[in-house]
Design a binder for these strands. Sequence first.
DNA 1: ACAAGATAGTCTGTGAAGCAGAACATCTAG
DNA 2: CTAGATGTTCTGCTTCACAGACTATCTTGT
Lengths: 169, 169
Amino acid sequence: MAGRLVVVTTPQRVDADLGWALGRVTRAHLHTAQEVLSGLPGGPRGYQVLAAANDGEVSTQLAIARMLGVDRTVMTYLLDELEGAGLVERRPDPADRRARRIVLTAAGRERLCDLDRRLREAEEQLLAPLLPAERDTLRELLRRLATGAAQDGASACQVAEEIAATDGC
Amino acid sequence: MAGRLVVVTTPQRVDADLGWALGRVTRAHLHTAQEVLSGLPGGPRGYQVLAAANDGEVSTQLAIARMLGVDRTVMTYLLDELEGAGLVERRPDPADRRARRIVLTAAGRERLCDLDRRLREAEEQLLAPLLPAERDTLRELLRRLATGAAQDGASACQVAEEIAATDGC
DNA sequence: ACAAGATAGTCTGTGAAGCAGAACATCTAG
DNA sequence: CTAGATGTTCTGCTTCACAGACTATCTTGT
């Protein structure tokens, strides 16, 4: 209200709400992802389980569940389906016989690799309204937020561009 | 597979997945929002309905439903609750007697204003891992993605900083 | 002016999805 | 060796949102 010399943008407008934008983008992403991942057991979450299991650092069911933010009881039937499709295996953890290590089968790795590529394409289409550099910035900012990591040196606007050229697979 | 000379970053790691980051951040935001909005009928979505109805441009139930990405049948009981709490009113649309215009009551505007402020604080805490400028960049990028708008001139990294100083209410 | 189809809102049923809680096996600490 | 914590699975329940039908109104074509 005070007469500051300010463009009067964003006073309680929905499209200024972070929650609204997040929800909308997430929903849109989920939608495109579901098309790409329609055949995969568990859909988008099935993919995330594959990806989580693939990078090895987290591999027990509970660790994956926590990383993906799903209930542990959900992991059970998610993995049932993925295992049934021959994409992952539940191996006894040698260090802790209560736990199961989730490892990808050869088919699983192959499938993941393929999906990864197609997902990337779909995402780029989703991010079309942004400039290429901005897309990388967004990815990087979201990644850092999701991991809870603070900036490690340079600003994201620069960092993002350095990440660009990777091949996948 | 082919021996390209490439830094082997981000080969199918979960935390490189846009969907994963989006889901995680959205979930975190929803969680903090739910604390702030615990008393509000409809929770976070109740807030979004208030915000959508407040900016006037979209005001019929269906328009709001589409903007928020909820089913029209859900709007009915969402609005029932908000109306029951005396925060909004359903007024007949003079131009179309099928439609209802959703308008905020005085109490609704006041409530929205208060929630808006507290939500902002909570969000800033959520965005703590990012630098202040990066937070604005993220907000701006997400907003543009959500509205589907392409960049209108300057890059977001600059644009965001110009938006900063607004008062709300 | 009238009929036919589209659209806004509401209501009812149904199906799915996920969580709480218990059960079982195993680990860790005292 | 006991007591409590932790990983996984299973059962039951609640919740929630979607499909579909229904009414009222708008729109279009003839």
